[in-house]
C-alpha cells in the first residue's frame, strides 16, 4: 500500500518535471517559421508533427506546458494563501468576521466559475497577470471553507480543551496542537487546487482572454488548431491536449497520494 503510493508520487513528479526540463532544453529555433516543413504529420523528425508555418509542435507543446504549469502553480499558491488566511480569520476573529467571510465564500460560489474568471481577467485587461489573478481570486472558496471547518472542529476538540484547562498559552496550543494537524491539510489542499487552476488557465486562454497569440500556451495552441481541423490536421489538437491532460492527471494523482499520508482514514475504502 505504502509502496504503491511512493511509486505513484514518483511517476507523477517525473511527468510534471519532464515538460519543464524539455522546455528549457529545446531550442527556440524549432519555433521558427520553416515553410518547407509545413503541415507534416507526426514522425521521427517531428514527434508531434508541424503546423501551418512549419513550427515543431513538440517544442511548442512543451514550452506551452511549461508556461501553463508555471501560471497554474503561481495561481494555485496565491489562491491557497488567500484561502488559508481567510479560513483562519473566519475561525478565530469572532462572529462578525466569520459571517462576512462566509458570505464572501457564498458570493464567490454563486457566480458560475468560468464567468467569474472571464470577468476578472477582463477587468485586469488580460495578459499573464490577468490570468494569474483571475485564477487565484476564483479558486479559494472551497479550501477556505475547509480550513474554517477544520479550525473550528479543532477548537472544540477535547485535547485542545484539556490543554486550555491545563493553562497552556494560546501560542502553545496553536503551534503544538493545531499547526501539525492543519499544515499538511493546508498544503495538500493547495496542491489539489493546482489541477483546477491549470485547467481553467487553459480554458480562458483558449477563449481568447489573456496571453498574446505569440506565446505558445496550450489554450492558444488548441484555439488556433480549430481553424485547421477541417483539413484533417488532427495532431495540432490531439497532442497538446493529451499532454495537458497527462499533466493535470499527474498532479491530481500526486495530491491525492499525499492526501493518503495526511488523512489515511478517508482512504480506507
Amino acid at each position: 500500500m505504502r509502496r504503491s503510493v511512493y511509486i505513484r508520487i514518483c511517476v507523477a513528479a517525473v511527468l510534471l518535471l519532464l515538460p519543464l526540463l524539455l522546455a528549457a532544453l529545446l531550442s527556440s529555433d524549432r519555433l521558427a517559421t520553416q515553410l518547407d516543413q509545413r503541415n507534416l504529420a507526426p514522425g521521427l523528425e517531428h514527434l508531434f508533427g508541424t503546423d501551418w508555418l512549419g513550427r515543431d509542435m513538440f517544442t511548442r507543446t512543451m514550452k506551452g506546458l511549461a508556461l501553463s504549469i508555471g501560471v497554474g502553480f503561481l495561481a494555485a499558491v496565491a489562491s491557497g494563501l488567500i484561502a488559508g488566511s481567510l479560513g483562519l480569520m473566519a475561525a478565530t476573529l469572532g462572529k462578525t468576521v466569520d459571517r462576512i467571510i462566509t458570505w464572501l465564500i457564498d458570493l464567490c460560489l454563486s457566480v458560475p466559475h468560468l464567468v467569474l474568471l472571464l470577468l476578472i481577467s477582463f477587468v485586469l485587461g488580460g495578459g499573464v497577470k490577468g490570468v494569474v489573478v483571475a485564477v487565484a481570486l476564483s479558486h479559494w472558496p472551497s479550501l477556505a471553507r475547509l480550513m474554517r471547518a477544520e479550525i473550528l472542529a479543532l477548537k472544540a476538540s477535547e485535547y485542545v480543551l484539556v490543554a486550555k484547562q491545563m493553562g497552556r498559552s494560546a501560542w502553545w496550543i496553536a503551534t503544538r496542537h493545531m499547526l501539525p494537524h492543519l499544515l499538511p491539510q493546508f498544503i495538500v489542499g493547495t496542491l489539489l487546487l493546482f489541477p483546477h487552476a491549470i485547467l481553467h488557465e487553459a480554458a480562458i486562454t483558449f477563449l481568447g482572454m489573456g496571453l498574446s497569440p505569440h506565446q505558445p500556451a496550450i489554450g492558444i495552441i488548441l484555439s488556433e488548431s480549430m481553424k485547421y481541423l477541417s483539413t484533417g490536421m488532427w495532431w495540432l489538437a490531439f497532442f497538446p491536449g493529451l499532454c495537458l491532460f497527462v499533466v493535470v492527471r499527474a498532479f491530481d494523482m500526486l495530491a491525492r497520494s499525499l492526501y493518503q499520508f495526511v488523512d489515511p482514514a478517508r482512504f480506507q475504502r
Partner: peptide
Amino acid sequence: YALSSTPAFWAGLLLLIVFTVWLPIFPV
C-alpha cells in the same frame, strides 16, 4: 477521474475531428 482531468474543450475538439472530419456524420 480521467474525465475530471480532461479539458472539456479538448474533448469537444476530439469529437469534432472524429465525427465531422474522419466520419462526416455530424455537422461542424
